[in-house]
């Protein structure tokens, strides 16, 4: 009996050791290695000493906050209205379905939509505003990132709304509360956990997206993720890349602690 149980754990344990623990340990180790392979603290000194890095980190956090905020502002009403529909599960599935389409294709579509001679500009011209530079701006980066993250915010909020006991709503109505009061005092506080897990699921990828900054954001290094990619694949400075990676991991851990408590798995279509 005991033998069988250890047998199950052999392939899985090997995976944990080789592809979870070892890589994390290696990225921490690599962050203390200089270009010649010796031990150094200079990567961290550079990161915290050079204002360009700190400014980039600050900007990355600001962008991530904005993306999360935009996503939340669009997702909450969507989830709320969806939960009131008749065939809500079907509607939810339909609205989540585009998640299954390759993220790069979506980004590619926006290159066309936002381009100088693209659909949005045709529309702006039509209503008399005139052409604007949209592609390769911060605005386009935030909008496309929010678009991609939408389903991951809608799902947990929708689930939280579904968990609310309907008799609470009846009770609130019976006690004379208006629809708005019921929403503010009963529904919203009860969905805060869903909002929290949504924020958690959206914020970290928003910090680390790199292909969007390349394709939509105009090839600038404006997020921590792009900086990691730049150092690993372009300038081949793995030590500095790992250091930024470690900062990203720490940011992730902080985020988890802040929004922690009971974490729910709401990030993927089931």
């Amino acid at each position: 009996m005991g033998k069988w149980k250890t047998f199950y754990l052999i392939p899985y344990g090997l995976w944990l050791l080789l592809f979870v623990i070892a890589p994390v340990a290696l990225i921490v180790y690599q962050s203390f290695v200089d270009v010649n392979g010796g031990f150094t603290l200079s990567n961290y000194q550079n990161f915290f000493g050079i204002s360009a890095y700190l400014k980039m980190t600050f900007n990355s956090v600001v962008y991530a906050c904005l993306i999360t905020l935009v996503t939340l502002l669009i997702s909450y009403p969507t989830a709320y209205f969806l939960s009131q529909m008749k065939h809500k599960q079907l509607w939810l599935m339909l609205i989540i379905l585009p998640t299954w389409i390759n993220i790069l294709l979506k980004a590619y579509a926006f290159i066309g939509i936002f381009s100088g001679d693209g659909t949005v500009n045709h529309f702006l011209e039509f209503i008399g505003i005139g052409r604007q530079q949209i592609l390769f701006t911060d605005l386009s980066f935030i909008l496309v990132a929010a678009y991609i993250e939408l389903p991951f915010m809608i799902l947990p909020i929708f689930n939280a709304l579904e968990e609310i006991n309907p008799s609470l709503l009846s009770a609130s109505r019976d006690l004379g509360a208006s629809t708005f009061q019921t929403f503010r005092r009963v529904v919203f506080p009860l969905t805060l956990n869903g909002v929290k897990s949504g924020v958690q699921i959206v914020f970290i990828p928003a910090l680390s997206l790199f292909m969007l900054t390349r394709l939509i954001g105009g090839n600038r290094v404006i997020t921590l993720g792009t900086a990691v990619e730049e150092n690993f694949l372009v300038t081949q400075n793995w030590g500095m890349g790992s250091t930024i990676g470690v900062v990203l991991i720490v940011a992730m851990a902080l985020m988890m602690l802040l929004t922690g408590e009971k974490k729910k798995e709401g990030g993927h279509v089931q």
């Binding site: 944990l16 080789l18 592809f19 979870v20 623990i21 070892a22 890589p23 994390v24 290696l26 990225i27 690599q30 970290i204 990828p205 910090l207 680390s208 790199f210 993720g225 990691v228 990619e229 690993f232 793995w238 890349g241 790992s242 990676g245 990203l248 991991i249 992730m252 988890m256 990030g267």
Partner: peptide, 21 residues
């Protein structure tokens, strides 16, 4: 919790650490 590490890690971190490994 060890199982969930790869699920919550950003892609760049997974990619970079696998590349080193």
């Amino acid at each position: 919790s060890l199982n969930n590490i790869l699920l919550v890690s950003p892609d760049v971190i997974i990619g970079a650490s696998f590349l080193i490994f």
